[in-house]
Simulated assay, not measured.
Amino acid sequence: MLILLILGIFILPVSAFFLDGPGTENWIIPIQFVVMGAAGALVAFWLPLAHDGASPGKRILVGASTGIGLAFVGLAVFWFLLNGIGGA
């Protein structure tokens, strides 16, 4: 899960680096969530995020939802790093 947390924090600036243009700037956060969902599904497929006897579909679903949840954490961390506690 630490892998997903680190990826959740760093995927937003990386996607902003590649998608910060006049036609693609609105795609930064949706792409972050898609990438984090896919990364969570892959990590859960290889590592046991769900309980031991879970089916592969359930493990992938738990991993994708964990990845999306940690994408929200990464978004919040990035927000507070840019704006501070007082906000924008």
Rank of each mutant, 00 (worst) to 15 (best):
residue 13 P to D: 11
residue 60 I to W: 12
residue 69 G to E: 01
residue 30 P to A: 10
residue 9 I to C: 04
residue 10 F to V: 10
residue 53 G to T: 10
residue 58 K to L: 08
residue 18 F to V: 15
residue 39 A to W: 11
residue 68 I to V: 15
residue 6 I to V: 15
residue 7 L to W: 15
residue 27 W to M: 09
residue 60 I to R: 13
residue 50 A to H: 12
residue 51 H to L: 03
residue 49 L to M: 11
residue 23 G to E: 13
residue 75 L to C: 07
residue 25 E to F: 14
residue 36 M to H: 01
residue 82 L to M: 14
residue 15 S to V: 14
residue 62 V to K: 01
residue 62 V to Y: 08
residue 33 F to P: 11
residue 9 I to M: 14
residue 58 K to I: 06
residue 78 F to K: 00
residue 28 I to H: 11
residue 7 L to P: 10
residue 69 G to A: 14
residue 60 I to T: 10
residue 82 L to S: 06
residue 12 L to Q: 15
residue 60 I to V: 14
residue 31 I to R: 05
residue 67 G to A: 08
residue 59 R to N: 11
residue 55 S to N: 05
residue 49 L to V: 13
residue 70 L to V: 03
residue 7 L to V: 15
residue 4 L to T: 12
residue 56 P to N: 04
residue 3 I to G: 09
residue 3 I to P: 09
residue 69 G to L: 10
residue 16 A to I: 05
residue 19 L to H: 13
residue 25 E to G: 01
residue 42 L to A: 07
residue 3 I to A: 13
residue 32 Q to I: 00
residue 87 G to S: 07
residue 3 I to E: 11
residue 72 F to L: 12
residue 64 A to M: 12
residue 50 A to K: 06
residue 24 T to Q: 02
residue 61 L to K: 00
residue 36 M to A: 06
residue 53 G to M: 07
residue 72 F to Q: 02
residue 9 I to S: 04
residue 68 I to P: 03
residue 69 G to T: 11
residue 16 A to P: 00
residue 54 A to V: 06
residue 69 G to N: 04
residue 20 D to Y: 15
residue 15 S to P: 02
residue 58 K to F: 14
residue 51 H to N: 06
residue 74 G to V: 06
residue 36 M to V: 06
residue 6 I to A: 15
residue 48 P to F: 08
residue 12 L to S: 05
residue 51 H to K: 05
residue 21 G to Q: 07
residue 20 D to G: 02
